[in-house]
Amino acid sequence: MSAARAREPGEIFGPRTTLFADVLSVGLITAVVCLPLVTVPAALSTACEVLRGSQRGRPATAGRYLTVLRGRLRPGDLAAGALALAGALLLVADLALAGAGLPGARAFAVVAAVIGAYAVVTGLRACARAESLSDWRTAVRRAAGDVPRDPGGSALVLLALAAAVLCGWMMLPLAFLAPGPLALALTAVEVRGRGRGVGLAARDGSVR
């Protein structure tokens, strides 16, 4: 029986990724690859690709992850990671300055938080797009358009990130497993959005 036939109505992924151990193994190896920090986008993008491949009957395992990762970590992937790291440090610095009691700090903190949240959701949704495997600019541009077009999915991305951070904060060992469920959530949002037609115009390059 094919993976498509075995899939229940409304189920996004095939039966292999319903095994919790598969998601955890992908999360663990993703966490290891993320340790240099500049590799975070490529590592998360690879995890999403592995989970997305389960729709086509491909196994969601650490071995498959390493196979996909072999074609990654190019200069463009590392540049994307460096840019994301610089943006995160800038946001933390801005929020720290806002908390220092400067004039207009409260309004500045709100604006910085909104911009930061938009940037984070855009980056995460870009990692879930297939274009991130070869073209980060296209992935980011289309993800930025998907954020306002799919507010429900964007909210789910924020909730998934918050859950992953909370798990890591409550118990440090869970931080090495959290990337798996986070990648699963990102991929699910992307697949659901594609099924509902979110971003189709952007992918086709025109509005029909």
Rank of each mutant, 00 (worst) to 15 (best):
S2H: 12
A3S: 13
A4M: 05
R5I: 00
R5N: 11
A6Y: 08
E8R: 15
P9A: 11
G10Y: 08
G10I: 14
E11M: 02
R16E: 02
R16F: 09
T18C: 14
A21Q: 09
D22L: 10
D22F: 10
V23H: 04
V23W: 09
L24Y: 01
L24T: 07
G27A: 09
T30S: 13
T30M: 08
A31L: 01
C34F: 08
P36L: 01
T39P: 04
P41R: 10
P41A: 01
P41C: 08
A43D: 00
L44A: 05
E49P: 02
E49R: 14
L51Y: 01
R52Y: 12
R58C: 00
A60W: 05
T61Q: 05
Y65G: 09
T67Q: 08
V68E: 15
P75K: 00
G76H: 11
G76L: 00
L78Q: 13
L78E: 02
A82G: 14
A82F: 10
A86F: 10
A86P: 12
V92D: 03
A93S: 13
A93N: 08
D94I: 15
L97H: 11
A98H: 07
A98D: 09
A100V: 06
A100K: 06
G101T: 12
G104Y: 06
A105I: 12
R106Y: 01
A117T: 15
Y118F: 13
V121C: 02
T122V: 14
A126H: 03
A126E: 06
D135Q: 05
A139N: 02
V140T: 00
R141E: 01
D146H: 01
D146V: 01
P148W: 11
R149E: 07
R149Y: 00
A155K: 05
V157T: 14
V157W: 04
V157A: 13
L159S: 15
L159Q: 12
A162R: 09
A162T: 15
V165I: 12
W169Q: 06
M171C: 11
L172Y: 09
P173T: 01
A175N: 01
A175Y: 02
G180D: 04
G180H: 04
P181K: 15
L182Q: 03
T187H: 03
E190P: 04
G193D: 06
G199E: 06
R203K: 12
G205I: 10
S206Y: 12
S206G: 03
V207N: 01
V207G: 04
R208H: 11
